[in-house]
């Protein structure tokens, strides 16, 4: 897309992606790692205002739209996915990234998460998973482990946590990955791979909340994650499903867990098989041929 115009030196610098807005995340927040990885991916892949759009939900993650100079839509809590789905159907030439949180996509927006996965919409979902509600100062989320004490669970959480990758897999997502926000280089590569994948891609990013989560800390992930081995076959649905059950001491797999080749939703829409919807001019239409049914 408009590659010939690009001058890497003047264009793809960090400065071109920077906005005048100061970063508002807490010092040490896992979101900085996601931000760095995404900016690095933008620079490497030449994602800019000609070819990319971002959609975010509400939560600490959503602030990212103020810190990356790419056209964005920050919608309502839980509703990033339907906005992104509409955007992608209307202009499938765009790389569309959805920034969401565990509360945003699994609690308030759980229904949309399931159905966007089922439809295999060609979107890349970056799920900032800090396992609680941070922006509202530390209540339990669908990712909070059983027994954890939070502001909303003073006696310990009695709900079992939800596993987003297992949920996405059973709902029909075709690309599943997990990474820890501190592994910036690897996360960048996964974001690029997820965007290349045609279909619904979910990246669960383990993103420690330094202010409110004293269980899932940077150290916890640094000590307990392991990279999927080279011989791991992400096309095998069954082993991917098994991997989603691994969440133990020193046994949290990171990397690409699953990848399936299946037509995306957008690729099955005849109306946009030749041209994006937005490139088809808006015209007044003659409807006389439709009258037959009404005579």
């Amino acid at each position: 897309m408009s590659k010939k115009k690009l001058q890497p030196k003047q264009y793809l610098t960090g400065a071109a992606l920077s906005t005048p807005k100061p970063c508002t995340w807490c010092p040490g927040c896992g979101d900085f790692g996601i931000w760095s990885a995404f900016r690095a991916a933008c620079m490497q892949e030449k994602w800019d205002n000609k070819n990319t759009a971002l959609v975010a939900g509400i939560g600490c993650h959503g602030h990212i739209i103020n810190f990356v100079k790419i056209t964005a839509f920050e919608g309502l809590h839980g509703r990033a996915l339907p906005v992104a789905s509409g955007l992608k159907m209307a202009n499938h030439d765009l790389n569309v990234f959805v920034f969401t949180g565990d509360g945003d996509s699994l609690s308030e927006g759980g229904n949309h998460f399931i159905h966007a996965a089922r439809r295999n919409q060609n979107l890349t979902v970056i799920l900032h998973d800090n396992a609680l509600y941070a922006l509202t100062t530390g209540q339990a989320s669908p990712r909070t482990p059983k027994g954890q004490v939070t502001k909303s669970t003073p006696g310990g959480n009695i709900d079992d946590p939800l596993h987003p990758l297992r949920l996405a897999l059973s709902a029909g997502a075709t690309f599943l990955a997990r990474e820890y926000s501190g592994n910036v280089e690897s996360l960048k590569e996964i974001i690029i791979e997820a965007n290349k994948h045609e279909g619904f891609s979910v990246i669960q990013v383990m993103q420690p909340c330094v202010s409110f989560n004293k269980v899932y800390t940077h150290r916890f992930f640094q000590e307990n994650i392991y990279k999927l081995p080279e011989d791991y076959d992400p096309t095998d649905t069954f082993s991917a499903y098994q991997k989603t059950f691994e969440w133990d001491y020193k046994k949290i797999p990171v990397g690409i867990l699953y990848q399936e080749k299946r037509k995306s939703y957008e690729a099955q829409l005849p109306v946009i098989s030749k041209k994006t919807l937005v490139k088809q001019p808006v015209k007044k239409k003659t409807i006389t041929s439709l009258y037959k049914k009404f005579i």
Binding site: A53, V55, F73, G75, L76, R79, L81, P82, V83, A84, S85, G86, L87, K88, M89, A90, N91, L94, N111, H112, I114, H115, L269, P270, V271, I272, L277, V278, Q280, V282, K285, S289, L290
Partner: peptide
């Protein structure tokens, strides 16, 4: 009549999604 007249009709998962999708599509320019 989608193909003949060049529009997409989508049945969404609920009305919340319906309006958010339409807003996303309108943001894209349609």
């Amino acid at each position: 009549h989608q193909e003949k007249f060049g529009y997409i009709y989508k049945q969404p998962e609920d009305e919340i999604s319906a309006l958010n999708m339409a807003i996303g599509a309108s943001f894209a320019g349609v």
